[in-house]
Write a protein that binds this DNA or RNA. Structure first.
Lengths: 152, 152
DNA sequence: CTCCTATTGTTTGATGTCGAACTATATAAT
DNA sequence: ATTATATAGTTCGACATCAAACAATAGGAG
């Protein structure tokens, strides 16, 4: 066999990615079950971004920030905009670009989501405890950072 | 740097779930880019399950094992079966059920996938190192287990 | 200015995923 | 036996996501 890495290492990576995949799945669906009708994690993340950082951003910058393709961002913005949660205007300094900003309705929706999220997070904290999360954060951040760098 | 050290518990959970989501996204797309045409992580996972454990399983048992809905498993099996990678027969002891098993073609496909996965895992290991994965595994497993239990 | 290349946003087609509703079968209650 | 409930698998509609292909605009090389 031409194995590039010892079986134990490959196995370790495999298991971590497996756990990560399952947790991502479970958490996002738990998330969306308590959200207002029609709100998804992807949509909330965009609102959250603007609430925390403000300003206007181009769709392609949002795509980079969230590690998704431009096509994916187009799709998500096309769900947020008709609901009046974000506002999209032309960029006068660049004919190719558009600029996205959150609206008052978007801020209200974000606040509503946070309200509903509180009990869910409290429940998870009660069941799981703070320990595993505190232990996982730093290594996860490092893995994410380096994987991120590998894409370029 | 308004807040650096003392983040709230909600914030901690939020960050962990955020990292987990991004890593799941990055890893699954990296996986699928090196897989044979048409193979996805979901499909490979099923083949992998049968290669490791053998035997026959009902779709609903597979759905439980992979933490997806029965509808999702139906969809994935409906992609594997026409390709001849799994075999699905009626369960004679229960008229509602069907039984899934891997085929020789499925085993060959699985072997091909493993071949292609090797270099990718080796690359990741070289870039990230073993440490963060080793540190993350146990806490992730605990989080996954408890989140899992919350669903019932 | 003209041509080539890079970037932006979009569309299209495929896949995975969920929740809800449905059919068929099995099991329990009466 | 009839009825009620539970389970297995499917279908449907919605959403997120990717890759690939496309149109429009920007910027640089001549």
């Amino acid at each position: 066999m031409t194995r590039q890495a010892p079986a134990s290492d490959a196995d370790l990576l495999f298991r971590v990615f497996n756990e990560v995949g399952i947790i991502a799945q479970l958490s996002s669906t738990a998330f969306e079950r308590v959200m207002p009708e029609g709100m998804t994690l992807a949509q909330f993340s965009i609102l959250n971004h603007f609430v925390r950082l403000g300003g206007r951003k181009r769709p392609s910058d949002l795509a980079s920030a969230f590690q998704v393709t431009r096509a994916t961002m187009t799709s998500t913005l096309q769900r947020l905009e008709p609901k009046g949660l974000v506002e999209i205007v032309a960029d006068e300094s660049d004919g190719r670009s558009r600029l996205v900003a959150i609206t008052d309705a978007g801020r209200a929706m974000h606040a509503d989501c946070l309200q509903r999220l509180g009990p869910l997070l409290a429940d998870i904290l009660a069941q799981v405890g703070r320990g595993p999360f505190a232990a996982a954060l730093a290594p996860l951040a490092e893995i994410r950072e380096k994987l991120d760098r590998m894409r370029d």
